[in-house]
Nucleic acid binder design. Structure first.
Length: 857
RNA sequence: GCCCGGGUGGCGGAAUUGGUAGACGCGCUAGAUUUAGGAUCUAGUGUCGAAAGGCGUGGGGGUUCGAGUCCCCCCCCGGGCACCA
């Protein structure tokens, strides 16, 4: 029994095999291969100073199991890792301590890499990428220049969230409940010059593309809702006493006859013209008050509608009626035309407003079989037109297109589509991000650039991008790709400038350059202007890109991480395509996943890529909660550190337990006792493998053992394909429990077990594989195949039910016929006790499974 | 408010073309081994009941020979959206 005393020394084993894999380059992905490819991608982490927490590896383990499984199935597998390393925390740390963010980032990356390596992933580390590496971000900049060239980038003054504490501008999505998502500081509205990407131009493509994706439905729905497509009409209402008209957007042109007032947003350009002099004071006060409210306040105050009558009227194009025009902040300038026709009878918001201000509520649709309850106003449902002249009696739904046609014929309206999706504010007034590769020049120099034969000519968009600066209009010129990367300059102070501009605005030797209109080269204006004709003074763009930028295309760079000539080599892209599996948190359902789709589709349209969609199959792993059932957080003190877990139980136990916790997509709590359970299981496997007396190499395992084994092969294989790793592990436990109970079995049975276990607990599987006398590495072994013929036994158990309740069972040959089984059931003593004094009204037989006797009396 | 997802033992969870509910693990109980502890092994463990048997998958109703699974109503938890005309 000496061999049983040998401990499961996971620390030594895990170190040994991690070194082996690294030495042997076991997980290098081959760019040239006859094998089919499999590309498993994790959402790459932001390397924070806190290090990895227990939630990170959950997705990585899942993708790693798939990667190792696919490798065993004969695929050429790519499982890469990298760092989404631009971001606010490193910059905040720099502001506090003066440490350059690149140093902080480097230290954090080193720590993350060490931690990830300690879990034993099948990662090809030669492909590691880092978004802050100029070799990487030159391509992020390159993509931006393409967008700029195609007119998809522009500059605009936009109200943005400004956080005084962070001294930074935040995107809408970085603000939660009026506080910054990072640090929970208060935020306020400020108008600042922003670089904006025209993602709205891709609204339709982004929407349509969703249909073909193997994504969680909830994520698709969220993206659909975010894009928010609606169909309706733009209708022109002539302004009474003016040659101008007010255009409204409505999804309910069928309710035009019920429009009893109109509303323009406080920011509407025609408002001034609409306000009559005696209302001016009141309206001005209202507009001013509205301007002070952020969108958020407006929503908060949504309980009570407010507004002011402008004194003007419009003419309803369908019936010539005069309709009063109001201004109210429940109409948003940023959606549709910023003006609406209000139909209080059929819209809840308009109803509320009309009631408050005593405006007429006129029904134009009735429910066909409507009783009073159904027809209560406001009534937003379908029905039949009334009070609508020639349209009366028509179905309202059908009437929509009819009215649109009639409006078009009369030149007072047209069918229209609207989206909730807004353009993407792409600039951040920060240091630690990719510099935006634009320079600003005068109109004169801009015209010269367009007329100069050189690298710039074709890179300039059709429509000039301009901005106002100190009463001067400046024009944007792109850097040519040959001038990339545009590196981040060194800076002494990481604080944003007082005006809310990026720290880059304070570095004049970087900011102010001589720019060559022919070559696109630039030289600091601290130097004398170089010789030659085409040098002009220019100012660099000081905004940097948001953290989303680098993650929009990283899946492509893994395919060809070191290419200095191209973003990705065509041939390599043709071979690898996109990820076959992409896993990451559901919190990225909209933003990252929408932005990445936008860039990918754009690059596809530009002919850079062969496929329009980046992520064919997507999965969201569920959150791992603390042992107390709360979200892990430092302040609650329930954070579990993977380093500690690995120290105590080993990486294999960590991997196995993260998968055993429950369904991959579920939110589930961590459990210290639970990891002991899977650790015990691994020890059991270890022990079984070190019992040579139980192994026989000559004989086959018993029929029963073979059945359990092949059942396990089948179930584990199916479970891996379905991402139900918890079920796969349960089945392996059943097999090991069985082996432990019997006296002897074939050593081949054990080897198959190790192969099944290898994707889950790779270190132990390698070690025991070697112990059993096989050559490493187990990862190169072909995946076992289940012999289904072994799963069918000659005998079947058939259960007996009376009125659907289990009352007995019997063993039968699998060829047994219905009548024999039913007779046997009726003959069963226990069954008889339930039949006594009753009449059998129905006999159900499910072949090979059950008999059910329905009785009454 | 609207749109999703989910409620199964003391706990994490298995089981859906409707067919033995609670696999597997944790915890717990008893026993074996051990100087002891730990580790390991054996047996038990939904609930009520002495047993026979009854009850049981958030609650109520329905379809069916048979419902965790299908249909209707309601409750609770989680997530997303939120004046989008």
């Amino acid at each position: 029994m000496a061999e049983e005393e040998q401990n499961y020394d996971f620390s030594t084993i895990e170190k040994k095999w991690q070194d082996f894999w690294e030495r042997e380059n076991t997980f290098r992905a081959e760019d040239q291969s006859d094998k089919p490819k499999y590309y498993a991608l994790d959402m790459f982490p932001y390397p924070s100073g806190a290090g990895l927490h227990i939630g990170h590896p959950e997705g990585y383990v899942a993708s790693d199991i798939l990667a190792r499984y696919k490798k065993a199935c004969g695929f050429n597998v790519l499982h890469p890792m990298g760092w989404d390393a631009f971001g606010l925390p490193a910059e905040q740390y720099a502001i506090k301590t003066g440490t350059h963010p690149s140093l902080t980032t480097q230290a954090n990356v080193d720590n993350f890499r060490r931690q990830i390596k300690s879990i034993g992933f099948a990662i090809d580390w030669e492909r590691e990428i880092n978004t802050t590496d100029p070799e990487y971000y030159q391509w992020t900049q390159w993509i931006f220049l393409k967008l700029f060239q195609r007119g998809l980038a522009y500059v605009d003054e936009k109200p943005v969230w400004w956080c005084p504490n962070l001294r930074a501008v935040l995107a809408n999505e970085e603000v939660v409940d009026g506080k910054s998502e990072v640090g929970n500081h208060p935020v306020e509205r400020r108008n600042l010059r922003q670089v904006v990407l025209r993602i709205t131009a891709y609204a339709e493509k982004l929407l349509a593309g969703l249909d073909d994706l193997d994504w969680p439905d909830s994520t698709k729905r969220q993206q659909k809702a975010w894009i928010g497509r609606s169909e309706g009409a733009e209708v022109q209402f002539a302004i009474d006493g003016s040659t101008d008209h007010l255009t409204v957007y409505t999804t309910r042109p069928d309710t035009l006859f019920g429009a009893t007032y109109m509303v323009v947003a406080p920011e509407h350009p025609l408002l001034d013209q609409l306000v009559v002099s005696e209302k001016k004071e009141e309206v001005d006060a209202y507009v001013l008050a509205a301007a002070k409210k952020s969108d958020l306040d407006r929503t908060d105050l949504a309980k009570e509608k407010s507004g002011v009558f402008t004194g003007s009227h419009c003419i309803n194009p369908v019936n010539g009626e005069k309709v009063p025009v109001w201004v109210a902040d429940y109409v948003l300038i940023s959606y549709g035309t910023g003006a609406i026709m209000a139909v209080p009878a059929h819209d809840e918001r308009d109803f509320e407003f009309a009631q408050k201000f005593g405006i007429e509520i006129r029904r134009v649709i009735v429910h066909p079989e409507g009783n009073d309850e159904i027809n209560e106003l406001p009534y937003p449902g379908p029905g039949v037109m009334v009070n609508s002249k020639e349209y009366d009696g028509m179905a309202a739904d059908a009437c929509k297109s009819k009215i649109i046609q009639d409006l078009e014929a009369g030149g007072t309206g047209k069918g229209a589509v609207n989206y909730k999706l807004r353009d993407w504010i792409f600039s951040r007034q920060r240091y630690w991000g990719e510099p935006i590769p634009l320079v600003w020049v005068s109109l004169n120099d801009y015209e010269r650039a367009k007329a100069t034969d050189g690298v710039l000519k074709d890179l300039i968009p059709e429509k000039a991008v301009t901005t106002d600066k100190e009463d001067q209009v400046l024009y944007a010129l792109p850097l040519p790709p040959s001038e990339l990367p545009l590196r981040l300059p060194e800076v002494e102070n990481y604080q944003p400038s007082g005006t809310g501009e990026s720290p880059l605005a304070t570095i004049s030797e970087w900011l102010e350059v001589w720019f060559n209109l022919e070559s696109g080269k630039s030289v600091s204006r601290t130097e004398p202007m170089p010789e030659g004709d085409n040098w002009v003074p220019a100012t660099r763009e000081t905004n940097t890109m948001p953290q989303w930028a680098g993650s929009c295309w990283y899946h492509l760079r893994y395919i060809d991480p070191k290419n200095p000539e191209l973003l990705v080599d065509k041939q390599k892209e043709a071979y690898w395509g996109g990820p076959d599996f992409y896993i990451g948190g559901a919190e990225h359902a909209v933003l990252h996943l929408l932005y990445a789709r936008f860039w990918h589709r754009f690059l596809y349209d530009e002919g850079v890529l062969a496929n329009p969609e980046p992520y064919k199959k997507l999965f969201h792993q569920g959150l791992i909660l603390g042992e107390d059932g709360n979200k892990m957080s430092k302040s609650v003190g329930n954070v579990v550190n993977p380093d500690v877990v690995i120290d105590a139980y080993g990486a294999d136990s960590l991997r196995l337990f993260e998968m055993f916790l429950g369904p991959l997509e579920a939110v589930k709590p961590w459990s210290e006792k639970g990891i002991e359970g899977v650790h015990r299981f691994l020890r059991k496997v270890h022990r079984e493998c070190l019992r040579p007396k139980k192994h026989n190499s000559a004989e086959e395992s018993s029929k029963e053992t073979l059945k359990v084994l092949h059942e396990t092969i089948l179930k584990v294989t199916e479970a891996i394909e379905d991402l139900r790793f918890n079920v796969a592990i349960s089945q392996m436990m059943i097999l090991v429990n069985h082996l432990q109970k019997i006296d002897s079995y074939s050593i081949d049975t054990l080897k198959v077990l190790l192969q099944l276990l290898a994707p889950f607990a790779p270190h132990l599987a390698e070690e025991l594989w070697e112990t059993l006398g096989s050559q490493p590495s187990i990862v190169n072994q072909p995946w076992p195949e289940a012999r289904k013929e072994l799963l069918v036994s000659d005998e079947v158990t058939i259960v007996f039910q009376v009125n659907g309740k289990l009352r007995g069972q019997g063993q039968f040959s699998k060829e047994i016929d219905k009548d024999s089984v039913i007779s046997a059931a009726k003959a069963d003593a226990k069954i008889q006790s339930f039949l006594e004094g009753k009449e059998i009204v129905k006999e159900i037989y499910v072949p090979g499974k059950l008999v059910n006797l329905a009785v009454k009396g």
